[in-house]
């Protein structure tokens, strides 16, 4: 849903970086070469880059390998298949609550938003924390001004989004023939949303901390993993709250 797009955009960026690294120096050299030859390296310089291309024929095989159908498919399919298996976790929960969902369309309206927002908040939190880590201003305590600002912002964003979503989902659900009251939908939306925001905070801080201790760059691995974990847990939390409220 919403955020897996964002998550995976990030993930694909990482993948592209990794493949670039794997291709090694010749690609970089070729790039430098064409950049030198073009008047400016920016977007407007594509015509120059095209002119420069025949002058650096060495680069062609590397680029072609990186852009081969086979390589793209073999890199992405296992990853996407693995992710699909993970997403079955959310699927099983949705399937289990099928009767409740069909009875109350307001809850069906909540599902995509819940999934999307979880990943979005997680990716904001993770990328900000890891930037802080790189800048040396991060420490894993709530007294750290940067961490405190991030936590405050994520909680405030969650309150805004899930408040608005509660009202919208109730209105749409009622229009679609549902019978849930505004209070119930708003309660479900806000409680599950705020729990989700807390989970995002805890998981993000823990994973950035863990990746720091393990010596892994949190930009590379934690963001795609944490955003997907939060997407899936978003559904679990939503239905835990639904089970308690209804």
């Amino acid at each position: 849903m919403s955020s897996p797009g964002d998550n995976l955009t990030g993930l694909a960026d990482e993948l592209a970086d990794v493949t670039e690294e794997a291709l090694g120096e010749s690609t970089t050299e070729a790039l430098d070469g064409s950049a030198d030859k073009s008047a400016d390296g920016g977007g407007a310089g594509t015509a120059d880059a095209r002119d420069a291309a025949p002058l650096s024929p060495v680069s062609a095989p590397d680029f072609d390998a990186d852009w081969s159908v086979r390589r793209i498919v073999w890199t992405m399919v296992p990853l996407l298949a693995g992710l699909s298996v993970l997403q079955m976790g959310s699927g099983v929960v949705l399937e289990t609550f099928e009767d409740t969902l069909l009875e109350n369309p307001a809850l069906l309206v909540l599902v995509p938003v819940q999934i999307g927002t979880a990943g979005n908040l997680a990716s904001i939190m993770c990328s900000r924390l890891s930037t802080q880590l790189h800048l040396g201003t991060y420490e894993p305590t709530l007294s750290n001004p940067g961490v405190r600002a991030n936590v405050g912002a994520v909680l405030a964003l969650a309150a805004t989004v899930f408040g608005a979503v509660g009202i919208a989902a109730w209105a749409i659900g009622t229009a679609l023939g549902g019978t849930l009251g505004l209070g119930e939908v708003l309660l479900i939306s806000l409680v599950s949303g705020m729990l989700l925001a807390l989970l995002v905070v805890v998981v993000s801080v823990a994973s950035v901390e863990a990746s720091y201790r393990l010596g892994i760059n949190p930009d590379d691995t934690t963001i795609p993993i944490v955003t997907n974990v939060c997407d899936i847990t978003g559904v679990l939390i939503l239905f835990a709250v639904v089970a308690v409220v209804l």
């Binding site: 897996p4 694909a12 996407l80 997403q87 079955m88 949705l94 997907n228 997407d231 559904v235």
Partner: peptide
């Protein structure tokens, strides 16, 4: 349908985002 929904939507993001 509900079972495949999250995986199906995540795939859209994965394929076209990348």
């Amino acid at each position: 349908i509900l079972l495949l929904l999250p995986a199906f939507l995540a795939t859209r993001g994965g394929v076209y985002g990348s």
